[in-house]
Design a protein around this nucleic acid. Structure first.
Lengths: 205, 205
DNA sequence: GCCTTGAGAGTGAACGTTCATTCAGCGGAT
DNA sequence: ATCCGCTGAATGAACGTTCACTCTCAAGGC
């Protein structure tokens, strides 16, 4: 197995399976609310064996972040190879609002709260956001035909705004149910304005 | 004492004192992370006595929401009686970004996570948001000289967007530290556009 | 003046439960 | 015979909650 530079290796298939099966239990009970017994039961194994995979709850969250991150990187790879990356990006973002985000929002609410309390988790969560910002930047650089470094400083605010908005919507959906059409329209308008602003900001004209 | 219609009376002075003194401890340890012993110690009293004021952790959060809500209602009252309510509102919103929001963001991250898990807390949190939306609506109705009912349906999306943005920024600040100037500029731009849009939407021209 | 009363604020030990964590031991493969 | 993946009972600490108790003090009878 190649040594990974991530803070948590956890890349093996079994860990992924376990992570997938405890995801819901973890989201429903929260970081402190979910006991190791709960999680082991959700994973369908004994407590002792569970400890062989995740020595602490923080490790679970870190691994979960890593897991989600690779998924997101895959999504971005698809976006980048599509023929209209900016449109494809928009579509994926809006997709996050309509479906499945109930579970995701709950999980992210928990992770966010835990990230503020536990430094190790905070680091993982922050690294996740930074990576997403970086992936967005790559797409924006491509779309505007600007060097990556220039795009980084030029679109920093927009990237962070996008990440914050998507996360806020996911959490809000988990808390209040699907957004009202009025709110959805407002959010889409902000996102569209933001993306259009970047699309019209190409180098050389 | 007059009967209050709020779900949680908790309006007496001693409860307020206790709430203020456990606020930080609660935010730092989280809903499940903070034990009743922790909270009693933070309040400077014995466990037994603490239970006389708050029979459960959910009751603490509910009372905390009620407490914050009256504070916010006071703020809105000041805004409403100022000579330029829309400007005053803008100022107050931006104020929330610069200062003190570290502690508030942490607390709100905790409350949000807990709100998804525990229905009683979810109700309190949702009621809080609804009240704020309602207060915003009142100001917007006044500024546009429209009847309240019309303003309610007309500005629903904008109000919810504002609440979501302010909360997201507070939580983000607690997690990542003060926002970069680029992000701050982006958020302020969205808010200004939103407020300007409403200011220019007066009835009769 | 002085004693009695009782209600309100406060205490902290005690209860049974659940927690994170460990580890002696199990069956099946080699 | 020996490894290996796995089990689940065991451990002590910490948990939420209760309760018998003390302290303080104002009211009221004598």
């Amino acid at each position: 197995m190649p040594a990974v530079t991530h803070p948590v290796p956890a890349a093996d298939a079994r860990s992924h399976e376990i992570l997938a099966s405890i995801r819901q239990a973890f989201a429903e009970k929260g970081f402190d609310g979910a006991s190791m017994q709960d999680l082991a039961r959700a994973a369908g194994m004994s407590v002792g064996n569970f400890y062989r995979y995740f020595p602490s709850k923080a490790a679970i969250v870190q691994a979960m972040c890593g897991y989600d991150l690779t998924e997101i990187q895959g999504e971005f790879a698809e976006i980048q190879t599509s023929d209209r990356p900016m449109l494809s990006l928009r579509e994926r973002i809006l997709n996050h609002f309509s479906e499945e985000s109930l579970k995701d929002g709950q999980l992210w609410a928990e992770i966010t709260a835990a990230a503020i309390r536990k430094p190790e988790i905070g680091q993982a969560a922050r690294q996740m956001e930074e990576t997403i910002v970086s992936l967005l930047t790559t797409i924006f650089a491509q779309a505007t035909r600007r060097p990556l470094e220039e795009a980084r400083v030029r679109y920093e605010g927009q990237c962070q705004m996008l990440v914050m908005l998507v996360k806020a919507m996911a959490i809000r959906t988990a808390q209040c149910g699907p957004a009202s059409p009025a709110l959805a329209a407002e959010v889409v308008a902000v996102i569209d304005r933001l993306l259009a602003q970047i699309s019209n900001d190409t180098a050389e004209g």
